[in-house]
Each structure stands twice: as C-alpha cells, then as structure tokens.
Design a protein around this nucleic acid. Structure first.
Length: 655
DNA sequence: ACATAGACTTGGAAGAATGTTG
DNA sequence: CAACATTCTTCCAAGTCTATGT
C-alpha cells in the first residue's frame, strides 16, 4: 500500500496537454496485492441509447407500402440499415431476423399482412438512411460542430470516474443499443433481435461512500453493489446468448495497465522455464499413457504454432476450434513428418498451414487419428483446456496456454528487431520494424480481408515511383550535358533508369501537360464563375492565355527536348546542385519503394492486434531509443497513452 | 470430476476523423 | 476545397481462464 496515491511529476508532454501533470505512476511501485482492485470508486453510471424515434418511412410488402407501429418500424429499420452488407444476404441471418420481426409484429395492435421474408422490401428505409447520412454530412460546418460539441458535453460526465481519488477514463460507458445480432461466421443465432436494455437489468458497482448515479426517470437499477474485487462499473445480461456485458475502464487506465504489465511479466517469467518445459513435453511425447502423450503433443502445437487453447463450444455457437478441440478432419498427415492444418479458429478465421514437425509428434497424431475415429471425432479425446492448464500451472506458477502466445510473439519480435541494420535510413528502419511486427502477426494468424483499394493502390505507388525516376533521369541528363566526362569518372551516378522506357516517358510527358492544362481550365472556369456572380466582366482572352501559359511552356519544352535530344537545363545549374538533386530524388525513390513493399506484404495481415495485445511495448520503446527512431512513428497517440508504463526503459532493455 | 457463471482479454470490421490530392 | 484514401476509434463478438456449485 505504501506509495499509493503518491504523485510524481511527469515531464511536460505536449500532446497529452491535459491539465493534470500529476500523474500516478503505479509502475514505480512493487508487488502490489491485486485481489483488491480499488478502495474508493465514484462514477456516473451508464449512458442509455436514446428512445426510438419513428421516421415514418414505409417498407413495402408484396409491392404495397405498409404502415408499421414504431416498435415494428424500429426492427424493420435494423434490417434496412444493413441491406448493403453481406449479413442481409445470409439466409440464417434473414431467417432469424424475420422470426423475431414477426414476433414483434404479432404484439402490435393492428394485424399485419407480413408473412414471408421474400416479399419484404426494405429499400425505402435504406434509401432514407442514406439520404439522412448525406444530409448530415452536408450540414453547414458550424452546425455540424455544434452538434458534435453537444454530444460530447452530454457524454462528458460518463467518460471519467474517480478511482482511489484519481480521475480515470471509462471505456464503454454506453449501454449497447438494440440491434440485430451480428454473429460472425456460421453463427446459428446471427440476425436475432438484440433487445433494448432497461435500467432494471443493469447492476451498478460503485464505492460504498459514493453517490449512486440516479437511474433514468421512472426507472430503478437492477441492483447496486460495492464489490471492490472486480474492476467493472456496471453490468447487464444480453438476451441472445445470455452472456454478461460489462462497463470497464479504458485501456489507458491504471487497472488495465497493471494487468497488462502483469501479463508481460508472466510471459518473461516463462523465458526462464521454457527450456525445462520443452524438455518435459518432448519426453512426454513418448509416454506410455495416451493422455500424457496427447497433452505433450498439444503443448508442442501451442508452443510451436501459437495455437489457442481451444475451449469447448456449444451447438448454439459458430463451429470454430482451437488446439484442444481440433478434430481429425482438421489435420492431414503427409509422411514422413508433414502436417497440414486447416480449420476455422477464433472469429471463424481460417488457419491453414503446412509444416514439418518432430517425428514423434507426427507419429502421435497418426495414432490419435486411428480408427475407429472418424473425421468428426476430436483429435485429443483425453484432453481439455482445464487439464492442460492444470498441468501447465504445475510447471510454472500462473502458466496457462495463452501465455505461450504472448511469450512467443514478444520473443520473436525482439529477435527480428535485433536484425535491424544500424546504418539503415529512417524508412528502412520503419520497414524493419513493420516486418518484425508482421512476422508475429503471421505467427498468430492475425488476418484481415484484402482492402478493396489494394490493387489500385499498388498501381498508383508504382506510377509515383516512375514519376520520380523520370525526374531523376532528367537531372542526370543535365549533369551529363554539363560535364560530359562524368560518364567516365562516375558512371554509376548517371546510369539510365531501370524501368523507364521511352513509350512510358512520352506518355508521362503528355500526362503532365494534360494535367497542367486541366488545372488552367478549372482555374479559368472558376474565376469566370466568380466574376459572373460578382457581375464583373469575364476574363479577357489575354488573361486566359496567361493562365494557360504554364502548360504551353511545358509542352514547348518537351517538344524541344524531343527535337534536340537534350534535356533543358535548370537555372543556375552546377555540378554540386545537380548531384544534390539526384541524391534527394534517390532518397525519395527508396522511401517510396520501401513503402510499397511494406504495403504489399501487408495486404492480408493485420498488424494491430499483435501491437495492442501481444508485443511487450518495452521492446518497441527500447528499439526506438537504440535506433534513434521517434516513438511516434511506431505508436500512435492512443498506444503511447496505453503504454505509458513501458516508456521509461533504456535502449538495452530485453524482454 | 464436471458444469456453469462470471470476469476479463483478444479480435476484425465499420464508421469517424484526418490527411492528401487533383 | 471537394473527393478520395488512410488512419484512428469505436463497437461488440468471441475467445481464455477462474471461481463456484454440485
């Protein structure tokens, strides 16, 4: 307890610009007991979504407009709102939605003709929403800002709480609004109606001495408790899966920070035991007891391939698996030691991998798959996450399956970063960092769908590089013209550009002129419109041709260059100046190229998840320090705020 | 031992905010 | 400065693991 609440000055930190410079640096304290999460807690409860406001736009049924009572209109609108998404085309989603929709319709006073989903047409409502969105977007700036400020002011009090006398940010203070449940993958309940949460369903957790926030007028809280062994401020039960929802503090809070810190320290602890643990499971791979062999095999997979533990799931959830729930069908064995994994993991993300494994692991898997087991039977029939974790905790205090993911992710990251060349340019260092990050994301199978713009983007980046190369080629030609012998003395300096053929250059030149002309024309049109509005005379022919002059000059220049075969010299050109220009352009080309490679390698990989959850931020902090890379390049403001506790380490710090 | 509830971390995607460019 | 692209933030679903009850 000592040192609690002690305030220390932080260095003035520009971007946080918050009034409180007295920051609570909990990470300077050691060995706190964390079964008690707080001694005093004040907060303002939760923010409920606004009541439903009918818009009166009618859906169609069988081609006819239908009047819906507000309750039914709301549910119809939930579906209409996501008409453009894949959900709307998913038959399970449609079916679940329609059943719940009909239930709501049945409660309405007026009988409804709506009997078949196929005859429903929600597009009028969908289009109404689109118009509304457009309207809001086009609101005058002041009005838009005023609305935003108003919303912010209404939320202000909910967004902070007082925890042990310190002001801390609350995370999700909003009660989830009613909606259609968007279960992922083949979730049997996707599309079901998630009902509006009433205050009577919400339990508030708050300090004994704190003022209990008043429930909305005419309502009561479901309960008010004072449990300081948990971190949540409010909770309710959701009606689809019966799971519990919580309001927690934000990621930058001391409570979240402390558990994050603990998580990484535990992973570092594993570093000291991993040698023995690996020896242990390697030996157990050949144990006489099948149960022990299964456990050892699972540990091998979790350690080597970063599989998740894999708890049992119910029939009312999507069929996804982790290590302990793998079925025979998910694994193909190719002699002598190749294994092909193909299954749906968390969030129904496909895990596909062909790997070579230890021969005894391969042989074990062959045994586990043997008859009479069929494709649908579990690979590890003698293993559960509970028994696995029980064994793990006997090897190291607090060790569970997920620690391996954190451990391997952070260690891999550190090792990869260790390969950063110390003489690299800033861009190359950033690339090295992102590569290391990506390595981890691949290990953990963090995927995303290829961005729609990806192909386009690659083409544009390639063009950009060529355009710079064109400029460089021009500068090189000038240099040659200025000092012809440079071709002999510094041949590499004036090499022709690799992927710049004459056809492309001609096209590029036409393009540059065309763009310049377009620019001039828009300028002329604009100016004339402006003058017309001000009841002035339009631009004279002379004025117009003055505006077009730049494009004409450019066109003439290209023509002349083509004719003479010589590059037009820039003004006051000297050897030094040209060399300087060339090296600047070279730098730009390298930067653009690295960026392009980086992006392409990234198209299906999502780096964020590992950065936020798996990579010990102290590794990044130390690397930035060591290589003179500003932290802001690797961590955005949110991340820097979340990881304040990790920012003090020196360049030699090791995970 | 086993099942279920509860509490907390991890995860991709949508939407908002911001930056870039023609 | 509008249109478009990129990055950040929010959202809430889906995991892991512990505690509790039988």
């Amino acid at each position: 307890e000592k040192g609690r609440g002690k305030k220390t000055k932080t260095e003035a930190n520009g971007e946080n610009g918050d009034e409180d410079n007295d920051e609570y640096r909990w990470w300077l304290e050691q060995n706190r007991d964390d079964s008690i999460k707080w001694t005093s807690l004040e907060h303002h409860g939760v923010l409920f979504p606004p009541e439903y406001e009918p818009h009166g736009v009618r859906m169609k049924y069988n081609g006819r407009e239908i009047d819906l009572e507000p309750e039914a209109e709301e549910v119809a609108s939930f579906f209409a709102a996501l008409l453009h998404m894949d959900h709307a085309k998913n038959p399970v989603f449609q079916e679940n939605f329609f059943r719940d929709f009909q239930e709501v319709l049945a409660r309405c006073k007026k009988p409804t003709p709506i009997k078949e989903f196929a005859k429903c047409d929600f597009t009028p409502i969908h289009e109404y929403f689109e118009r509304e969105r457009e309207r809001k977007k086009n609101l005058p700036k002041e009005e838009r800002l005023a609305l935003k400020a108003e919303k912010l002011a209404a939320e202000e009090k909910y967004s902070y709480c007082m925890l042990d006398g310190r002001r801390e940010k609350v995370g999700n203070f909003r009660v989830e609004p009613p909606a259609l449940f968007r279960g992922r993958g083949a979730h049997p309940k996707t599309g079901c109606l998630k009902k509006r949460v009433m205050p009577e369903q919400v339990t508030i957790n708050i300090g004994k001495d704190a003022t209990v926030p008043p429930p909305p007028a005419g309502h009561q809280w479901g309960g008010v408790i004072h449990d300081n062994t948990v971190t949540w401020l409010a909770t309710w039960k959701e009606n689809i899966n019966g799971s519990v929802k919580y309001v927690f503090l934000a990621a930058n809070s001391s409570l979240k920070g402390q558990s994050d810190f603990k998580k990484f320290e535990k992973a570092r602890e594993l570093k000291k035991h991993i040698h023995k643990i690996r020896a242990d499971y390697t030996k157990d791979l050949k144990d006489r007891m099948m149960q022990v062999r299964q456990r050892a095999t699972a540990m091998y997979l979790i350690d080597r391939f970063a599989l998740r533990a894999g708890n049992e799931k119910g029939d009312d959830e999507a069929d996804t698996v982790g290590c302990c729930t793998l079925r025979c069908e998910h694994i193909t064995l190719v002699p002598p030691n190749r294994v092909v994994f193909d299954f749906l993991g968390k969030d129904s993300i496909r895990y596909y991998r062909e790997v070579d494994v230890d021969v005894s692991v391969w042989k074990n898997m062959k045994i586990f798959k043997k008859e009479p087991k069929g494709p649908n039977d579990p690979l590890f029939d003698r293993l559960t996450t509970a028994s696995l974790n029980k064994h793990l905790s006997s090897l190291m205090a607090g060790l569970t399956a997920k620690v391996f993911r954190t451990f391997n992710a952070s260690l891999t990251f550190q090792q990869e970063l260790g390969k950063t060349p110390s003489l690299a340019t800033a861009a190359e260092k950033v690339l090295a960092y992102n590569r290391a990050n990506r390595e981890v994301a691949v290990l953990c199978n963090h995927q995303r769908s290829v961005p729609k713009q990806h192909e386009n983007q690659m083409g544009r980046m390639q063009d950009k590089i060529k355009a710079i190369k064109y400029q460089r080629w021009h500068a090189k030609r000038e240099l040659i013209q200025l000092t012809p012998r440079i071709k002999k003395t510094h041949p590499t300096l004036v090499e022709p550009e690799s992927d710049l053929d004459d056809d492309w250059c001609r096209e590029h030149e036409t393009d540059l002129v065309r763009k310049e002309r377009e620019k001039a024309e828009t300028k002329i049109t604009r100016e004339n419109e402006k003058r017309l509005a001000a009841k002035e005379k339009p631009l004279s022919k002379q004025e117009e041709s003055d505006i077009r002059d730049k494009a004409d000059v450019l066109a003439a220049r290209f023509k002349e260059e083509r004719k003479s075969g010589k590059a037009e010299m820039r003004r006051n050109a000297t050897v030094e100046k040209l060399e300087e220009a060339i090296s600047k352009l070279t730098e730009r080309i390298i930067a653009a190229k690295t960026q392009m490679i980086d992006r392409d390698e990234n198209k299906t990989t999502s780096l964020g998840t590992s950065k936020i959850n798996y990579l010990d931020p102290r590794i990044t902090s130390a690397w930035c320090r060591k290589h003179g890379v500003p932290l802001e390049k690797m961590f955005n403001a949110t991340l820097r705020d979340k990881f304040r506790w990790a920012m003090d380490v020196d360049g030699e710090w090791e995970f």
